[in-house]
Computed example of a mutant assay.
Amino acid sequence: MTLIMCDSMKADLAICRARQTNRDLETTFMEVQWEVTIELGKTLAETTDLVFVGTKRVNIEEEDGGVCGICLEDMEKGKKVK
């Protein structure tokens, strides 16, 4: 339901802008979609960093540090990881 409302709002905005600027609706709608995507990306970029709030760095003390379960990179002795 929310996606339908969002699409409807984007279409309404595109129609309004197309009328105001005498531009074709298809191009204006694509611009509106692009703007919404950019703003959503900015919002997600700000909030995904919060996932790591409260995590702490640890020192790998074993000779064979193993592999990170998240990024799958090798962990080496003496290296700090999160």
Rank of each mutant, 00 (worst) to 15 (best):
M75H: 05
D74C: 02
G41Q: 14
M1H: 08
F52A: 13
K80L: 11
F52K: 15
K82C: 15
M30P: 06
E61R: 06
R19F: 03
E46V: 05
T55P: 14
L25G: 00
K80H: 12
V58R: 12
N22L: 06
V36L: 09
V53E: 04
R19V: 06
T28L: 14
S8Y: 07
F52T: 12
K56C: 08
K42I: 15
A18F: 00
I15F: 02
E35W: 09
A45E: 05
N22S: 06
C71M: 08
D64L: 05
G69A: 15
V67H: 01
L13P: 04
T43N: 13
F29I: 15
L25H: 00
G78W: 03
I60G: 13
C16S: 07
T2R: 06
N22I: 02
D12G: 08
T47V: 03
A18R: 02
W34Y: 11
T21R: 08
D12S: 01
T48P: 10
E76N: 10
A11P: 06
C68A: 08
N22C: 02
G78P: 02
V67I: 13
K42D: 04
L40D: 02
K42Y: 12
E26I: 14
T37N: 12
V58C: 08
V32R: 00
T47K: 07
D7L: 12
K77P: 00
I4E: 00
V81H: 06
Q33C: 12
V32E: 01
V36K: 03
L40R: 06
F52I: 14
T2E: 04
E73K: 05
F29V: 14
C6A: 11
T28C: 04
V32D: 04
I38W: 13
I15E: 02
K79L: 00
D24Q: 09
D64G: 11
M1G: 09
V67F: 10
F52Q: 13
T55Q: 15
E73N: 10
G78I: 04
A11E: 15
T27V: 14
M75E: 03
R57P: 12
R19Y: 07
E73W: 07
L50Q: 05
T28K: 03
E63C: 01
E35A: 10
K82Y: 09
S8D: 00
E61M: 11
V51E: 10
E63A: 03
E31F: 12
S8I: 07
I15Q: 02
I60M: 11
V58G: 03
V53Q: 09
D74W: 03
E31V: 14
T48W: 11
K77T: 06
M75Q: 11
C71T: 13
L13I: 13
L72W: 10
K82S: 09
T47E: 01
R19W: 06
T37V: 02
N22G: 04
I4F: 03
K10R: 14
I4Y: 08
K77S: 01
I70Q: 10
M5E: 05
T48L: 09
M30W: 10
G54Y: 14
E63P: 01
T2M: 03
T47C: 04
C16T: 05
Q20W: 11
T37M: 01
E46W: 09
V32K: 02
L40W: 03
M5N: 08
I38Y: 10
E35L: 11
I4W: 09
I60F: 12
E76C: 12
C71Y: 01
I15A: 01
